[in-house]
Design a protein around this nucleic acid. Structure first.
Length: 486
RNA sequence: GGCGUCGUGGCCGAGUGGCUAGGCUGGGCUCUGCAAAAGCUCCUACAGCGGUUCGAAUCCGCUCGACGCCUCCA
């Protein structure tokens, strides 16, 4: 097996990946809150972990990948309703109706971008009992306290024996100094404390019975409970967006410690933001592009529609830990490069082999693995893939050669990385109609070549130009004419 | 204000103490009836100022700037 190293946010450095149980990986990723459509920034994050999941699978690990659906709503502040019930009132729908609608939307979008389904996709509302149990345990362990039907986590007390800030590298003392004055009457002992259970006001729609009265679970608890339930008290990888590091992930660690007395996660991984016009995409500020708009091109930031796979390629050209700025020109450039890559790949089966190789496939292959093994460096991997694009084009021109064995190795490797690891869909999904269209184009190519032999340039150019006008490009090569359907 | 990330050529975007990222774009050449495609090639950067070093875009310090978190957010 390859030696994989990854960047651990807990230690802030790259580490050799060594799963708790050899050959098996437990991975938890924070999923969406399903109160509105996912935007492209959300998609990037899930796509990053999809790529990571895919590479782990490719390496032969048996991976249990858990990604939750947050359908219980998160508090916006101490007094407000949670987001799901607010939205439900606006649209005059049941909360679960909202949840259903946006869960379906979420799944459809991710499918378009070719993301694999997680092994388990648990919901917060399906784990209320477990959350109540966890709260009871935290109270028993002296780190939770009840006030007026709500339960809070005692961060200050926790910090006496443990390190609240171990992940985000914050010092709780600083946090105390910098806390804005909350002149609202809060039940918390300290502003840093966070809710484990929140009493439901009469108008609150989502509500459950608990030992502390009718209420609903706090924001951070579901992930602790569900990750523990499906992956164990200790597991390998926990992922999520950079913006979840604090407080969400920090609280998860505290809760898990308070319940089970162990640091739950060996490797924390955080994907970086997708920006638009240099600013973070965000549901709340409206600075975002919806995936649907991208596919139809209906957004002021877009000049045209883009295929999801081209956008996936665009995202894979950046490292998952780097901020990526979305712009029309950047995606256009990526789309073009992506087309060139796929065109070359589709050519592989037509290549002739030779008795010698002029390219070191083994070395190239290892360079691809080295790139991925270095904290999933997809931009480097893609750079290597373009070396092979050049090679294929040269071979097609009889200027480079590979033996049968090398070509086979090359093909297997490139297919694995492009389709299995990067998750780029094949453009060669030719259906029957496309086959027939191809046949028609071949006929036209033959007619054109006859015209060219007769030096009837007018006719030959007419065929070529009119085909181009409807999106079919003819390419004259040494071995004859090929075509590309847009 | 606190914590953190980052600042690379026309654009996007990697990277290592000394040796080519890659993609897109633009110029030139080869091929071609012309064009396209493909190949070759050119434009060769590392925010600013200091310091460490034989040598730094890569290490350290400062300055400026951007962004993220500190409040729901991937």
């Amino acid at each position: 097996m390859q030696t994989l190293s990854l960047y651990n946010s807990l230690t802030n450095k790259k580490e050799i990946f060594k799963p708790l149980k050899e050959g098996y990986v437990g991975m938890y990723v924070c999923g969406p809150t399903v109160y509105s459509n996912v935007h492209l920034g959300n998609v990037r994050s899930f796509m990053s972990f999809d790529m990571i999941y895919r590479y782990l699978l490719h390496l032969g690990y048996k991976v249990r990948y858990v990604r939750n659906i947050t359908d219980a709503g998160h508090l916006t502040d101490d007094d407000a309703e949670d987001k799901i019930s607010t939205k439900a009132r606006l649209e005059k729908l049941e909360p679960m109706e909202i949840v259903q609608k946006y869960t379906v939307d979420f799944h459809q979008i991710l499918q378009k971008f070719n993301l694999l389904s997680p092994s388990i996709e648990p919901t917060a509302t399906g784990h209320i009992m477990e959350q109540i149990k966890a709260i009871e345990t935290i109270i028993e362990n002296g780190l939770g306290y009840e006030v007026n039907g709500s339960v809070y986590f005692d961060v200050i007390k926790y910090n006496r024996t443990e390190n609240y800030g171990i992940l985000s590298k914050r010092k709780i003392e600083d946090a105390i100094e910098n806390t804005r004055v909350l002149d609202r009457q809060s039940d918390k002992k300290n502003p840093q404390d966070f809710a484990l259970w929140k009493k439901a006001e009469p108008e609150h729609i989502q509500r459950w019975d608990s030992p502390w009265g009718v209420g609903f679970p706090g924001w951070h608890l579901e992930c602790t409970v569900m990750s523990t339930k499906y992956l164990g008290e200790e597991f390998d990888i926990h992922g999520g967006g950079m913006d979840l590091k604090f407080p969400h992930h920090e609280c998860e660690i505290a809760q898990a410690q308070a319940c089970n007395h162990v640091n739950p996660v060996k490797y924390w991984m955080h994907g970086n933001m997708l920006t638009l016009n240099g600013k973070k995409m965000s549901k709340s500020t409206g600075n975002n592009i919806l995936p649907g708009e991208l596919i139809t091109g209906e957004n002021d930031n877009l000049s045209k529609a883009f295929a999801p796979s081209a956008v996936r390629f665009f995202m894979m050209q950046a490292h998952y830990r780097s901020v990526l700025d979305f712009s029309n020109t950047a995606v256009l450039a990526a789309e073009k490069g992506y087309g060139r890559l796929m065109e070359a790949i589709n050519m592989i089966d037509k290549l002739k082999t030779s008795s010698i190789s002029t390219f070191d496939v083994k070395l190239w292959k290892q360079k691809c693995y080295n790139a991925m093994n270095d904290d999933f460096n997809t931009p480097i991997l893609i750079a290597h893939l373009f070396e092979v694009v050049k090679l294929i084009n040269l071979m097609n021109d009889d200027k480079a050669f590979l033996t049968i064995a090398d070509l086979e190795d090359l093909k297997t490797t490139i297919f694995a990385f492009v389709y299995d690891v990067l998750g780029l869909e094949s453009q060669a999904n030719l259906n029957d109609n496309l086959d027939k269209l191809g046949g028609v184009v071949e006929v036209l190519i033959t007619l054109r070549n006859q015209a060219r032999e007769n030096k009837d340039w007018k006719l030959s150019d007419q065929i070529r130009d009119e085909l181009l006008a409807i999106g079919i490009q003819l390419k004259d090569g040494k071995e004859g004419t090929t075509f590309l359907i847009d």
